[in-house]
Design a protein around this nucleic acid. Structure first.
Length: 271
DNA sequence: CAACGGACCTGCCTGC
DNA sequence: TGCAGGCAGGTCCGTT
């Protein structure tokens, strides 16, 4: 479900609750998420003062005075703020219970999410160490994309979704950014000119910041920590618009599977 | 190496 | 109405 804008929306929603609060205890009801939740998370966070929430790619870094827990929402995960003691539902896998009487509750039907312990240097955690630059960082640019793509034959759509290339690009926004930049999703990554990659880097930043501004994209069930949907779905140009007309040229939007993921594009505008 | 496919798990929608 | 099959916003890992 969540890509970078949805994770960022979640971060903004939970940060005011978390920052400056103290965790009373961590309640784990289902330890077997994508990886088992390490007991160290509960032990370290119980009684700890929380400093804030940061984001790296689609990971949420829950920073405490004793170290950082690393949360990922997977495909179907979400956080919500509940009153402590609220009866959990079947897919409510863990709660961070704060001393003020509220709890941060993690819900995830598919259990692709995770909660891990990152210690004092979470960015060195195995899952984070090799991530590419954040799209809004100075390091991320057309030149970076060009350099990383040299000699590679993989479809640019798949290339964009590789965590080591750029942090946080998912299936929706990869299609959207390629449409904005006029690049065909099947084009070999190594056969794209620098100037086109510059347009693509710009398109990526634009579409992600507009989506964050709109509170993310809700296709079926994404909601922020207060349960509100995101409004970017109505501004998608291609994703989930198979058969509808291109907003630019009017031809029919196509759907095609690239690297096992549904991809949407305009065959006339994207070359 | 790069590229690909399978794996993890549940819910929802479609078509027979 | 029931059921099988396909599909879903992620991404790691083992195999070519």
């Amino acid at each position: 479900m969540p890509e970078l804008p949805e994770v960022e929306t979640t971060r903004r929603g939970i940060a005011p609750l978390v920052a400056g609060a103290r965790i009373e205890r961590v309640v784990v009801r289902e330890r077997r998420l994508r990886w088992p939740i390490p007991r160290q998370v509960e032990h370290a966070l119980a009684g700890a003062a929380m400093l804030g929430v940061r984001r790296r790619a689609k990971y949420l870094l829950l920073e405490s005075e004793r170290g950082t827990a690393i949360a990922h929402l997977g495909m179907s995960g979400s956080f919500s703020v509940v009153a402590a003691g609220t009866e959990p539902d079947v897919h409510d896998h863990y709660d961070l219970v704060f001393d003020g009487g509220t709890a941060l509750r993690f819900t995830d039907p598919r259990k692709f999410g995770s909660l891990l312990w990152g210690g004092r240097e979470p960015l060195r955690h195995k899952l984070l160490a090799d991530l590419g630059p954040e799209p809004f960082s100075a390091e991320f640019s057309g030149a970076w994309l060009k350099e990383r793509s040299l000699g590679r034959r993989v479809a640019v759509k798949s290339f964009l979704m590789m965590p080591a290339v750029v942090a946080g690009m998912g299936n929706i926004y990869a299609s959207e950014a390629l449409y904005r930049a006029g690049i065909h999703p099947r084009r070999a990554a190594g056969r794209i000119a620098l100037s086109r990659y510059e347009a693509l880097a710009r398109a990526i930043r634009d579409v992600l910041s507009e989506a964050i501004e709109a509170g993310g994209t809700t296709l079926r069930d994404f909601a922020d920590a207060r349960g509100r949907p995101g409004y970017f779905a109505q501004r998608l140009d291609v994703y989930d618009r198979e058969g509808q007309s291109c907003r630019r040229c009017g031809s029919s939007i196509r759907r095609s599977v690239i690297g096992q993921r549904a991809s949407y594009y305009c065959a006339r505008c994207q070359t």
